[in-house]
C-alpha cells in the first residue's frame, strides 16, 4: 500500500534535490493553478500532437524539477499497471471497421487501440505534470497554497490531518492485525475471515473517531477557533524566478491549447 503524502516527503524534503529556481522556489498557488490547467487541457484534448507535446514537456518539467528518476518511474509503473487493463480490454470492442489483427477467436480493432493509446498518453502526461508541479511542494506548502486559493478551510484541514494521521492509523491497524495473528488468526476464504477483517476495520474506524475527538480537544486547548493559521514560507521566491516560471507555464499552456485545437 502506498501513502502518497508519506513518500512525497521522503522524496522531497528529506532527500532534497532542490535549487532549480524554475520549479522549486515558485509560489505554490502558481504551481497548483498550472497543474490544474495543464491537466485540464490534456484531459480534454483528442489531438495526438497535443498529447505528444504534453508528454515531452511533462518529462522536461520533471527534469527541471530534478525529480528522482526511480521515484518517478515507480509511480508511473503503478499507474500503467492500471492502464494495462485498458489495453487488454478496449481493443476487443467490436466496431464497424474491419479488425486490425485477428488471432483465432480474438480480433483487435483500430478504434480501441487508438483509445487505449490516447488514454495512456493523457494519464502519463498528467501524472508527470502533477509530480513535477505538485509533487515538489511539501504538504504544508500545498495546504497553504490551497488555502490562499480560497479552497474551503475544511478541505485543507482534512488534507493536513490526513497527512499527519494516516501513518498513525496504519500503525493502529497493524497493531490490531498483529494481535489477531498472535492469537492464531489465519486469513482464508471463509466467513470467519471476513468477520475478523470487518471487526479490524470497524475497530480502526472507531479508534480514529475517538482519536479525532482527542485531537480536536488538543486544538481547542491551543486557541483553535475554526481558522487554521499557517506560517508563511521562510524564503520567498527570488525576484526573477516567478516571472520566468510564469513565462514557462503560460507558454506551455498556450502551446498545448493551440495544438489541441489546430493540429
Amino acid at each position: 500500500m502506498q501513502y502518497s503524502g508519506y513518500t512525497l516527503t521522503s522524496g522531497n524534503s528529506q532527500s532534497k534535490l532542490l535549487n532549480s529556481p524554475l520549479m522549486e522556489r515558485v509560489d505554490a498557488r502558481l504551481k497548483i493553478v498550472t497543474a490544474g490547467l495543464l491537466s485540464l487541457v490534456l484531459a480534454s484534448s483528442q489531438s495526438l500532437s497535443c498529447l505528444l507535446a504534453g508528454l515531452i514537456l511533462a518529462v522536461v518539467y520533471c527534469i527541471l524539477g530534478r525529480l528522482n528518476t526511480w521515484w518517478v518511474l515507480k509511480r508511473l509503473l503503478s499507474l500503467n499497471l492500471f492502464i494495462l487493463f485498458l489495453w487488454l480490454t478496449l481493443p476487443l470492442a467490436k466496431t464497424p471497421s474491419p479488425p486490425v489483427i485477428t488471432l483465432g477467436w480474438v480480433s483487435l480493432y483500430k478504434e480501441g487501440l487508438f483509445l487505449a493509446m490516447i488514454i495512456t498518453m493523457k494519464s502519463n502526461g498528467i501524472m508527470l505534470f502533477l509530480m513535477s508541479l505538485i509533487g515538489t511542494l511539501s504538504i504544508p506548502e500545498l495546504c497553504r497554497g490551497l488555502q490562499q486559493l480560497r479552497v474551503p478551510s475544511r478541505f485543507v484541514q482534512l488534507l493536513g490531518a490526513t497527512y499527519r494521521y494516516i501513518a498513525v492509523i496504519k500503525e493502529e491497524y497493524q497493531r490490531l492485525y498483529q494481535a489477531a495473528l498472535l492469537r492464531g488468526f489465519v486469513p482464508g476464504t471463509n466467513l470467519h475471515t471476513y468477520r475478523t477483517y470487518g471487526y479490524l476495520i470497524a475497530m480502526t474506524l472507531l479508534r480514529s473517531k475517538i482519536r479525532a475527538e482527542r485531537v480536536h480537544k488538543a486544538m481547542l486547548m491551543r486557541g483553535f477557533t475554526g481558522i487554521y493559521p499557517m506560517l508563511s514560507p521562510d524564503s520567498p521566491a527570488p525576484p526573477g524566478a516567478t516571472p520566468l516560471s510564469l513565462l514557462l507555464f503560460s507558454s506551455t499552456f498556450l502551446l498545448l491549447t493551440l495544438l489541441s485545437f489546430f493540429w
Binding site: I139, G160, R164, V215, K217, A218
Partner: peptide, 12 residues
C-alpha cells in the same frame, strides 16, 4: 495530553 500523538497534529 496523555497521548502526545493527539497533541501534535501538524506535519512539522
Amino acid at each position: 495530553f496523555q497521548q502526545a500523538d493527539d497533541q501534535l497534529f501538524c506535519p512539522t
